[in-house]
């Protein structure tokens, strides 16, 4: 799998990324475009559709060694479609282009005027001299840095909830008598699977939590049927995110998909446990 997207990036193909980054020393659209991409004080991340913007301090503003690359990483992590600036070094241009970001350099004037020119297609893209051999296979520092940043972020996002879930399970272990759970999960495979799927549909969030909860429930003597249904429904059926799904993909789609997925969760739970029993027999 290639790391670089090349010039014909997804942004061009699908036009789904609507943000651009502009280097500036000011904090809003009235400011002037800064002369250097790597060391400008800020990057304005502008949403082209709404013209709303974020003013992000440029990590390279200190002008130290590698400053340009820090700005590149920032631009890539903000999912921008293009970078607009006064000057962009060949190395930075190459990295940006490799990551599917168009670079427009040699620009000056007010940020908003430059954006308008970009919107009307009056700007000319800077060509990057990407040697064909470095496309794809090579993993460079930037890619590793980016991957590390986003992995750390994803991991950190996951931890607070995971730790809380584990803490709650601890409380559950200490305070709730096992009989209570076994009253909810009767031991009847069909009924338990249904109850498990219901729980999984109500709760949402990172799937890791469902594994931990499921694993602990098994320890309580809850059947694997119920636990499996919970795990599948946790991700594939979402009552909490139903409004968001309806807004994005339509009410009929969301209801039919969630309904069918609920049935699927039950079916898969039964099939999986049956297959497992067959294999382990």
């Amino acid at each position: 799998m290639g790391v670089a997207l090349g010039k014909t990036s997804l942004a061009n193909n699908l036009d789904i990324v609507m943000k651009i980054a502009i280097s500036t020393d000011g904090t809003d659209l009235e400011a002037e475009v800064a002369q250097r991409f790597g060391t400008s004080r800020y990057l304005l991340i502008v949403d082209l559709e709404t013209m709303s913007f974020d003013t992000v301090p440029n990590p390279g503003a200190t002008g130290q060694r590698g400053a340009g690359m820090q700005a590149v990483v920032l631009a890539i992590s903000k999912d921008v479609k293009a970078v607009l600036t006064g000057h962009c070094s060949p190395a930075a241009t190459r990295q940006l282009t490799k990551n599917g970001i168009q670079v427009y350099a040699e620009l000056s004037g007010k940020v908003k005027d430059v954006i308008n020119k970009y919107k009307t297609g009056d700007l000319k893209e800077s060509a990057a001299d990407v040697p064909p051999t470095t496309r794809g296979a090579k993993i460079d520092t930037i890619t590793v840095l980016l991957a590390l940043t986003s992995s750390a972020r994803q991991f950190a996002m996951m931890l607070p909830i995971l730790i809380s879930v584990v803490l709650l399970i601890g409380l559950f272990n200490a305070f709730v008598p096992k009989d209570l759970l076994l009253a909810i999960f009767s031991g009847n495979p069909i009924l338990d699977t249904f109850v498990g799927a219901c729980f999984g549909s109500i709760f949402a969030g990172n799937a890791i939590n469902s594994y931990v909860i499921g694993g602990e429930l098994l320890g309580y003597g809850v059947t694997l049927f119920a636990v499996t249904a919970l795990i599948i429904a946790w991700v594939s059926v979402g009552i909490i995110q139903l409004p968001a799904e309806i807004a994005a993909l339509g009410g009929k789609f969301a209801l039919i998909r969630n309904g069918l997925s609920f049935v699927m969760a039950i079916g898969i739970a039964i099939l999986t446990v049956a297959a497992l029993n067959l294999i382990l027999r």
């Binding site: 799998m1 790391v3 997804l10 699908l14 789904i16 999912d79 990551n99 590390l148 992995s151 994803q154």
Partner: peptide, 19 residues
């Protein structure tokens, strides 16, 4: 999990997945 996340992030970008 962290190691796998890192590997996936190294080789895949949401943009590519969307493609």
């Amino acid at each position: 999990v962290f190691a796998l996340m890192l590997i996936l992030n190294l080789f895949l970008k949401p943009a590519q997945i969307a493609r």
